[in-house]
Nucleic acid binder design. Structure first.
Lengths: 307, 307
DNA sequence: TAAAAATACTCCATAGGTATTTTAT
DNA sequence: ATAAAATACCTATGGAGTATTTTTA
């Protein structure tokens, strides 16, 4: 059964226009091309479809019967393909993005705003939850993609770096280190620390950095949210190490932020299921985020906005 | 929209078999061919249909949606084409044949019997009517084809000779000419004739022959049916000129049949609309009639069956 | 490391075009 | 005589094959 869509479309055009030359003109083909297509179709079906003289082309009974069924089916086929094609082009629908709390507060508002500008028809649903749940949501396909702290390399995910976010020292203005332009990691030894707990993706990195620099100190408090951490520091419970994106500090709190040396940072990445393509719509949002890289990086610079 | 059926079938096969190699095997294609077909389809739709690793091929959401619509539509298309194809091959249905009275009585029974043998599923409807109506029925497409005395060459019809049917002289056994082995046309001069009327296709020919041979005689009687003619001859109303196919003579009638010299004959032909194809079924009957030529010719030889 | 898809290339079949012939009105 | 389809022939594109490379579990 070697019938092609091309042949069927030619067949229809001949019926519609009542002639091979006219049908050809309508299709952008020459008369011999039409002639051949019809002949091939007739041979494939072992059935004469047209009775043709040089003056007129008349469909046979069989041709008319075929035409009846064909128009409907071919129209449906066109619709199905058109629907598929539009799916790739259309700009409305829903995209689900998982994002860690700090990022939901700092980066996502920027992305959402931009998204609204570019794709007003697109609804972006934010899944604001902790690192582990974000990763699971991505892996299970519950969300289109995630915006998280770079996970362990062993995690089966595909990730795309978005920006780097430095760690800063946060302390009270009356703290011993507050006067310095910058603080060295070793200077943290002996200082009571107030940190985010392990539900945060950064905590793992901070633990690693402290160990790496041989810092010997105790975690006096650990909390789920950065703002709580800052309050604790303001209340004199110790100093904190915080990524830039977790700022700004609570208004009116008497805290200082200083660079840590040597500089250390976490990577913020977009993640998605490995070897799974994003929906066309999700792709747009993903790309939009990447295009915003420079702009987003600004949000991670407390020194730039003078805190 | 340059999508081919081929590509869609490949797409379906990949979904069904869950792999390019397997799909290829099922379709009788190689893996690279499948790979290419899928890629082409994806490019045509500007849409990713499969997420593929070397270990597994998974349809994307868009792919699955397309699949849903496609299976139904493609099945319908196959059905439509299959129905068309079968139409050319199937052996049941109705064929309408117009036939002149003499032929309905002589040739058609033979054709009908043979038809029943070869195509028991086929119903052959006989339209037994006079020449003019037969021709009109064919021209108007009321019947598939006709079996008639060869009409005037100017008649817009396509005809195929089937057999030739000699004219014979029919007279009473006690008639002056009855003793001869054959009769010459000129010997008919002065004889009262009993002939078929002009509703018969042969009458025109007989008139022509009489004039051609300069026969000077009167038509004593003209009738619509051959059997009536023979009765008239038996009743002594005159002699008759009759084609072989109009025989046999009525049983028990004391008539003789002798050849006319020089031999004259009418041609029995199959006729159909010019430049119109026969339905596949009608074609079979038409061809069957042509295959029976020799056999049918026997029915036109009263000498052979010794009347 | 093995199994499967992607890629590179080569070849042939098919589709389309131009030029010409045939045919019906 | 004209208009349209059929035919012949040529070219270019595309589809399929083999061989090879890449990739992931």
């Amino acid at each position: 059964m070697n019938v092609s869509l091309r042949q069927l479309r030619v067949f229809q055009a001949v019926l519609e226009h009542g002639g091979f030359s006219r049908a050809g003109a309508a299709l952008g083909l020459t008369q011999p091309a039409v002639s051949r297509a019809v002949r091939e179709l007739e041979q494939a079906l072992e059935l004469r479809l047209f009775d043709r003289t040089t003056r007129e082309v008349v469909a046979t009974a069989a041709g008319l019967r075929l035409q009846g069924k064909l128009t409907r089916v071919l129209d449906e086929l066109e619709d199905a393909l058109q629907a598929a094609r539009l799916e790739g082009a259309q700009a409305h629908g829903v995209v689900h993005v998982a994002s860690s709390p700090t990022l939901s507060a700092s980066l996502m508002p920027l992305l959402l705003a931009r998204c609204r500008q570019h794709y007003p028809q697109l609804r972006l649903v934010l899944h604001d939850q902790v690192q582990r749940l974000n990763i699971e949501a991505v892996q299970n396909g519950l969300v289109d993609f995630g915006l998280v702290v770079e996970p362990d390399a062993a995690t089966p995910l595909e990730s795309e770096p978005l920006l780097e976010d430095d760690f800063w020292l946060v302390c009270r203005r009356d703290h011993a280190l507050a006067g310095q332009a910058a603080a060295h990691w070793t200077q943290l030894s002996g200082q009571p620390l107030v940190l985010l707990d392990h539900s945060s993706g950064s905590r793992r990195l901070i633990d690693g950095l402290l160990e790496q620099h041989g810092v010997d100190c105790e975690v006096a408090q650990q909390l789920g949210h950065s703002q709580s951490v800052f309050r604790m520091v303001a209340a004199g419970q110790g100093v904190s190490i915080s990524p830039g994106l977790a700022m700004p500090l609570p208004a009116g709190s008497d805290l200082r932020v200083l660079p840590l040396l040597p500089a250390a940072r976490r990577r913020i990445v977009l993640i998605k299921r490995p070897h799974r393509s994003l929906s066309p719509l999700a792709q747009r949002v993903w790309r939009l985020a990447l295009e915003m890289r420079r702009e987003l990086a600004q949000a991670a610079r407390p020194d730039a906005w003078g805190a």
